[in-house]
């Protein structure tokens, strides 16, 4: 443990401090959005959005390398794909709920297929594996500010709208009867989910993002009586998993992302058996 703290103080180990900071700051949007995702039981929607991003990234990479659209950064491509996927899924959820799972599956696989084809035609530009698994140790200073801004926006919106978000998650029909703009709220939450995923997928990879979005709130739901309590526990667990995962990864010299995921999974299983 002491070696890990020494490393954190090492002036040459900025990457480790950045990874820790990104985990701690990201814990806030992960805890808030993750709680919504878990209580609404839409984890598969979050996973589909996360995977569809590859389509946008691939298209932007192709546009940059083949058409010279230098301003079209892959981040914008990812953002475009995520928001588009969120809106399509949201629309299908409202209009054709019975076909939702099919549409989610299509968006999931076609987004990845499109991305892989575009990336294949943009040689030497991008490694899809890095996108799938990411590397939290490559986080830069600019990323910290971006995630900080996201954490601020998501927290402000979620806390301000908490009664309305709770109502649409709990009893959408009653929320409509009370005059709440349930469709707008539904789309807003999906867009916030997409934003959270886009910003953090590029730093942590799809797998770690889906894990941190679902596992901490799922554990928190077993231990809390209120939604506010669930969010608080999920935020703390997120931070602990990042910290503990990085420490274990550093000590064992194992890749950090999978260690964080396995740590979270182990705690989830323990909570399940100790209910």
């Amino acid at each position: 443990m002491m070696e890990f703290f020494d490393a954190l103080r090492d002036p040459h180990a900025q990457f480790l401090r950045n990874a820790l900071w990104i985990g701690l700051i990201g814990a806030l949007p992960f805890g808030l959005i993750g709680t919504y995702v878990v209580v609404r039981r839409i984890s598969y929607i979050a996973a589909a959005i996360a995977h569809s991003i590859l389509g946008g990234v691939g298209f932007a990479a192709f546009a940059q390398s083949q058409w010279g659209w230098q301003a079209f950064d892959p981040t914008y491509g990812a953002l475009l794909a995520a928001i588009l996927s969120a809106l399509v899924i949201g629309w299908v959820n409202l209009r054709f709920a019975e076909r939702e799972d099919t549409v989610i599956g299509i968006i999931w696989v076609s987004g990845m297929a499109i991305g892989l084809i575009f990336l294949a035609k943009s040689p030497g530009y991008f490694d899809p594996m890095a996108f799938l698994f990411g590397d939290i140790l490559l986080v830069g200073q600019g990323d910290l500010w971006r995630v900080g801004l996201l954490a601020g926006i998501v927290s402000l919106i979620c806390i301000a709208l908490s009664p309305q978000i709770t109502a649409i998650a709990l009893d959408p029909a009653f929320a409509r009867i009370r005059g709440l703009r349930t469709q707008r709220l539904h789309y807003l939450m999906l867009i916030l989910t997409a934003l959270t995923i886009v910003l953090l997928v590029q730093l942590m990879g799809i797998i770690l993002v889906v894990a941190l979005l679902t596992l901490p709130p799922a554990i928190a739901a077993m231990r809390s009586r209120t939604l506010a309590g669930m969010v608080a526990i999920a935020v703390v667990l997120n931070a602990l998993f990042i910290f503990g995962g990085l420490w274990l990864s550093y000590s064992l010299d194992w890749p950090s992302g999978p260690v964080i995921i396995l740590l979270a999974t182990s705690v989830f299983l323990l909570s399940l058996f100790r209910r």
Binding site: Q164, A169, L170
Partner: peptide
Amino acid sequence: RFPITAIDIVGMGLLHKNKLW
């Protein structure tokens, strides 16, 4: 698994479209 108490459910009856916090 939806963690909500009875009193919070009752409070939903006071919701309106401009309700914040």
